[in-house]
Design a protein around this nucleic acid. Structure first.
Lengths: 209, 209
DNA sequence: TATAAAACGACAACAATGTATAGTTTATTA
DNA sequence: TAATAAACTATACATTGTTGTCGTTTTATA
């Protein structure tokens, strides 16, 4: 009379399944991935897969959590150097995330949040709001810190500016899905963003009004 | 020996079908719409529908063409008044397009270009590039005109600025799909856009270098 | 009224889902 | 080390939804 495997083992197995599923989603996106695809990639039987996950939405949600957990690209300010440079760095880094689109979940995520049945009861599905809020808040914190230090003197609310930044980056991603990154000119666009961000944030270096 | 109906009749019928399909796509998006849905909405039989269109991608493409044709929201500059005000107007108008998202094809389009099989051979499907190019070019023309008149003195290339504008608006749309427009604060975001656009375009009113 | 086109709707084929069952493997523990 | 219960495999199955085709029926006109 013994439960055959430890809790640990089950966790580990589940993680393997999630990793396999993640690969499939990156390759094929969300809409065109079936449970069968995941079984094939993971080398697991139908019954076993269904004993871990109820359906494909469930699988995707778990993949999302897993991915979020390891891929923290939130802005984390440090004490060293001017905040403006840190912010600039962060924006420039986004280029690599966007251009690596074929090797990330970005595409599948966009599909999922657009087309899955799951988020239809949008209000019951806070994930997407939370993520948006977390990201903008992280930016907002930096902007506020910059204000406190007297480095930034924005004329708009820091929240608005943070939202603006995130929205633009979302736009870049969408364009990149549809046009490819060469046509989108990601780098060029990010440099225009930086230019205007500087104006938004730090008008005192331009003129005193 | 008679072709049962006139060419006119066929065109008319096709247009009716397209209009019915358009309604369905607006209601249900692209991914969750089936040929059956369109038959039901149009009150037409399977065979008849298939005699007009090969498959659902084909239907959608025709809907797109139809929609583009009547819904020209490209920027058209006039000779009256400063270009800056015209541009500002155009940007502010986008608010209504974005907020009317539930009554337009925008959502279905985003799904289609993300998830249909059709655009997979992206290079063979110029529609999306053309549309992007047309839109940005329309903006670019205005910016150039403004430069010619001495009204605008951008420090970036006008093409970059045009792309920047369109990308941001795409981002706003994506956010609106996912968050709803209250949460996205469309109006607020557009005003930040206008602020930074002014800086991008017309730095001479700020300082002379 | 003959006829060719247009519309109808049944149908086969397929793909995917989630459940179920019988048999096999395996880690634990008594 | 043998018994046992859980995990897993392999496969079958009913169900559902969708697609595209095809033989038949209807209908507008010459």
């Amino acid at each position: 009379m013994a439960p055959k495997v430890s809790e640990e083992y089950k966790k580990k197995r589940e993680r393997e399944l999630i990793e396999a599923a993640r690969k499939v989603f990156i390759e094929k996106g969300f809409v065109h991935t079936s449970m069968q695809d995941i079984m094939d990639k993971a080398g697991i039987s139908r019954g076993a897969l269904y004993s871990y996950f109820d359906n494909i939405d469930h699988v995707f949600i778990e993949v999302l959590k897993y991915d979020d957990q390891k891929d923290i690209q939130y802005f984390v300010p440090s004490d060293e150097g001017p905040l403006w440079l840190q912010l600039k760095n962060w924006v420039e880094e986004q280029q690599y995330y966007i251009e690596a689109i074929d090797h990330t979940l970005l595409y599948a995520k966009a599909e999922f949040f657009l087309s899955s049945n799951y988020p239809n009861d949008k209000d019951n599905f806070p994930y997407i709001f939370e993520r948006y809020n977390k990201t903008t808040e992280a930016i907002e914190v930096v902007l506020n810190e910059g204000m406190r230090k007297g480095e930034f003197r924005p004329q708009q609310s820091t929240r608005s500016i943070a939202r603006y930044l995130i929205t633009f980056i979302n736009g870049l991603m969408l364009d990149t899905f549809q046009l490819g990154h060469e046509r989108t000119k990601v780098k060029d666009q990010l440099s225009v963003l930086l230019f205007s961000l500087e104006k938004l944030i730090n008008p005192n270096t331009q003129n005193e009004e």
